[in-house]
Design a protein around this nucleic acid. Sequence first.
DNA 1: ACTTTTGTTCGTAATTTAACGAACAAAAAT
DNA 2: ATTTTTGTTCGTTAAATTACGAACAAAAGT
Lengths: 99, 99
Amino acid sequence: MIEQEIITEEQKLAARYAKAMGHPIRMYILELLTKQACCYSGDLSEILPIAKSTLSQHLKELKDAGLIQGEIEAPKIKYCINRENWEKARQLFKRHFKI
Amino acid sequence: MIEQEIITEEQKLAARYAKAMGHPIRMYILELLTKQACCYSGDLSEILPIAKSTLSQHLKELKDAGLIQGEIEAPKIKYCINRENWEKARQLFKRHFKI
DNA sequence: ACTTTTGTTCGTAATTTAACGAACAAAAAT
DNA sequence: ATTTTTGTTCGTTAAATTACGAACAAAAGT
């Protein structure tokens, strides 16, 4: 055998998504985006009690994990859920929680 | 109003659970425990490619998040899912992912 | 009483995360 | 051609995470 892997790729991916969701601010953003399709980071910046640079970091993490995507609508950026990966995450957690 | 909270307690709790799940090792442990009821940490120690002290830390995190519980069966410790909190997490993620 | 088994705690180190303000970049508006 | 708006990047700091081996503790077995 080439490599004896104990932890599956699916578990790694599920952990990756979970980690991205593992902060109240990011959980808030994700829930907002599943409720209302899209939002501008400026809107979030007004609502959330954090510096805009911090918000930018959180958005980047969600983007890097693949859970959201940003579309330029100059000079703003419109953020939406990344449907494809969101569906993947949904399936993984569905199995994880046996829903 | 006393305090203008933007982020709900449910979002905080969901983020707490997500954070606990946000590591491949912990995801593996949780999935194992949902598949086979219980396990001893010694069993995990044999399977997983990490030091037993590191495993102990991961188990403590899952315990602190409330997702698992340990029962002493001297000299071993038997770990199980914490059914009550697991159900709470399941409900939170069910809503989060609209499952 | 001693040894073994089992798992935690301690001490340490490297890395990552979270947070801020300041500086910067890009494009729209004036 | 400036100014404004918008959001990222940079530099920094503090705290948390991940990891290890060594030391320790508790209880069972000999």
